[in-house]
Design a protein around this nucleic acid. Structure first.
Lengths: 194, 194, 194, 194
DNA sequence: GATGAATGAGGCTTCATTCAT
DNA sequence: CATGAATGAAGCCTCATTCAT
C-alpha cells in the first residue's frame, strides 16, 4: 500500500521532469503533468501541496540520490586527483544519462533566487563539501598548492556545470562523462605548457 | 525628439532589470515595470511588442555593450595570459557593478532553453570567440599546451560564471572582479603543487 | 453526466442570446454572459473555445433546429403555393416566438462579412435550397412562370427577412406569423390589380 | 477655408468607409482610419467627436445624397410601375457603384438596435415614404390592388435589400442595377403564371 | 483514494481618446 | 489647425487549486 503510494508519487515526478524539460516550469500546466502521468488533475494534489512543491521534490530526490551514490562510489578512492576525476565523472554521468532531468537541473534550478538559495544552503552544500574536502585533503598531501578550498570548489563546479549546459544546448548527443578526465587534468595541471 | 524616445526606452529597460531581478521574469507584472519606470502600462507597448521582448532587449543591450567595451579594452593586450585575466576582470567587473543586471543574467537567462539557444547562437557567440581565439593564440605561442580550444573556452567561462552566481547567492558584497587574477592563475597553472 | 453537460452548454447559449440581444455581440462581455448563465467566467471556456464560438454555436443550433422542424412540417405539403406560405409561416413563427433570438439573427448575423459568408455557404444554403426547389416545382407544374429560381428565392427570402427586421424595430408586439398569408399572396400574385 | 475643412472631413469619411468595409466597425481602429486618410490620429477628433460619430456621418451623408438624387430623378415619373422600377434602379445603382459603401450599409447599419432605430426613424423614413406614396398612388389609379401600403413598402424594400446583400456575398461582380426591371416585374405581377 | 468539472482571481494587451508641443 | 506620444480603463482568457461525487 505504502509502496503503491510511493510508486504513484514517483510516476508524477517523472512526468513532471519530462514536462518541465519540454516547456519549462512556468510554461508547463499542472493538467499537462497529470495527463503525462496518466492521472486526474486533482490526484496531483493528493501527493503534492502545490505545483511549486513538485519542482522542489524533483531536486530533493535527485540530489539525495546523487549524493548517496557519489559517497558510496568515492568511499574507496583516496587519491585527491582520482577523487576529483571520479566526482566529475559521476556528475556528468548522472545528468548525461537523463537529458530531461539535466534540462530541469540546468534551466529550472535557477527558478528564482530564493529557490536557489534554499537548495544551495541545504542539499547542494553536501555536494560542495565533498569537493572541498577533496581539495583540502590534496593540499594536506602537498599534491595541491595553497588556494582557498572554497574558491577552488567553485571553479571546479563551474567547469563541470558549464560542460552540462553546453551539452544540453548542443544538438549532438555525445557521451558527456567522457570529458571527466580532461576536465580534471585541466583543473589540476592548468592550461600552461609543461 | 529621437533622443527623448531612446531615453524613455532605456528608462523602461532599467525598470525591468530592477523588477526582474527582484521577482524573476515570470513573477514580474508588466504593470509593475510600468510603475517602476513611472509610465502608464500602455506606454510599455509603444516601445516593446511584448513582455518577452523586454527581456530580450535587456540581454541584447547588455551583451552588445559588454562585447564592445571588452574588444576595446583587449585591443592592446597581446599576451594570452594577460588577455585571459583581462577577460575575467571585465566579465566580473561588468556584472559585479550592477547586481540587478547580474541577477537577471544569471537567473533569467536560463529560464527557457529556446531563449538561451537564441542568444548562445548569436550575441554570446562573439564573447566565446574572444576567449577561444585567446586560447588558440596562446597555443601558437607555445604558452598553452594542446587542448581543444572550444573545450578550454567552456572551462574558463564556467569558472567565471560560477563566481558570479556564487557572489549573487552570497549575502556579502565583496568586490567580484578581485577574483580575476587568482581565477586566471588557477585556469592557466592548475591546482597542482609547483 | 453527458446530459448535464449538454444542459449547461444550453444554459450558456440561452444566456448569450439574451446578452447579445440586449447589447450586441461587441458590447457584450463574457463575464456578463457568465453571470446571466449563473456560472463562473472560466466555465464558459470549458464549453466554448472563445467568445466568437458562442455566437457561431447560437446560429448553428438555431439553424439546425429550424431546418429540421421545417423539413418535417413541409413533408406532406406538395402544393407550391401552400409550401411557400408554410415556409414563410415557419420562418416568421420561429423568430417571432423568441424576440431575443430574432434580434441576434437580424442584427448580429450581419456583423461581419466573413462570418456571414461562413453560414451562407453552409447552414443557410439548406434553407435557400428548400425555397428554390419549391419554386422549381411550381414552375414544372406550370403554377409559376419562368424566372430564375435563385432570383425568386432571394426575393422571397428578402420579403420575409424584412418583415422580421421591421417587427423587431417596431415597439408593437404583433403576431409576426400572421403576415405569412398575405406575404405569400403578394409574392405569388403581385401587387397588380386582378 | 470652409471648403478645405469639408474636404478633409470627406477625406476621413471615405477612409472610414474603406476601413469599415474591410474589417467591420468593431475590428477597425481609429489609427487605421487616420493612416488611410493620411492624417494623424488626433486629427480625426478635430472633425468627429468619436469613432461612433464617424459611422453615423457615413450614413447621414450617404442617405441624404441618395434621397436627394432619387427625388430629383423621380420628379418626372408619374407612372407607379415605372416609378417603382426607377426606385429599385436607383437603390441598386447607388450601392452597386460603391462596393465599400454597400458593405458598410448592409453590414454595419445593423450596428446595434438603437443605432438602427435612430436612422429608421429619421433619414430612412424619407425613403420609405417615397416607396409608400408610390404604392398609394398606384392604388388610387387602380393599377395596384388593395394592400396595406406600409406592408407593401416593406416587401419591396426587402426584395431590393436582399439583392444587395446577395451581390455582396457573391464573388461575381455583376451589374447590380440590371435586376431592377425583373425585380419590379416580380413585385408587381408576382410569380404566378399568366 | 481518485476524479475532473468548476471556480475566479488576475495578467497581458489593446485602443479610443486626450493634450502638450 | 495638426500632431502622435501617452494614457489607463477594461476585456478575453488562462490555469492553479478545490471539492462534490
Amino acid at each position: 500500500m505504502k509502496l503503491k503510494k510511493e510508486e504513484k508519487k514517483n510516476q508524477i515526478i517523472q512526468a513532471a521532469i519530462r514536462t518541465f524539460a519540454k516547456n519549462g516550469y512556468f510554461n508547463s500546466r499542472v493538467s499537462e503533468i497529470a495527463k503525462e502521468a496518466g492521472v486526474a488533475d486533482g490526484t496531483i494534489y493528493i501527493y503534492f501541496k502545490s505545483k511549486d512543491e513538485i519542482l522542489s521534490a524533483i531536486f530533493d530526490e535527485a540530489l539525495d540520490k546523487f549524493v548517496a551514490v557519489s559517497e558510496e562510489r568515492l568511499k574507496n578512492i583516496s587519491d585527491p586527483i582520482e577523487r576529483l576525476e571520479a566526482i566529475a565523472f559521476l556528475h556528468l554521468q548522472y545528468l548525461g544519462a537523463n537529458r530531461d532531468l539535466a534540462t530541469v537541473f540546468q534551466i529550472e534550478f535557477r527558478h528564482n533566487i530564493v529557490f536557489m538559495e534554499k537548495f544551495t544552503r541545504s542539499k547542494l552544500r553536501d555536494y560542495f563539501r565533498i569537493i572541498r574536502e577533496t581539495i583540502e585533503s590534496g593540499q594536506q598531501k602537498k599534491v595541491f598548492r595553497k588556494l582557498d578550498p572554497k574558491f577552488g570548489t567553485k571553479l571546479f563546479f563551474g567547469m563541470i556545470d558549464e560542460m552540462v549546459t553546453s551539452w544540453l544546448l548542443s544538438k549532438k548527443d555525445y557521451q558527456l562523462e567522457k570529458a571527466a578526465k580532461s576536465l580534471t587534468r585541466a583543473f589540476v595541471f592548468g592550461l600552461a605548457e609543461c
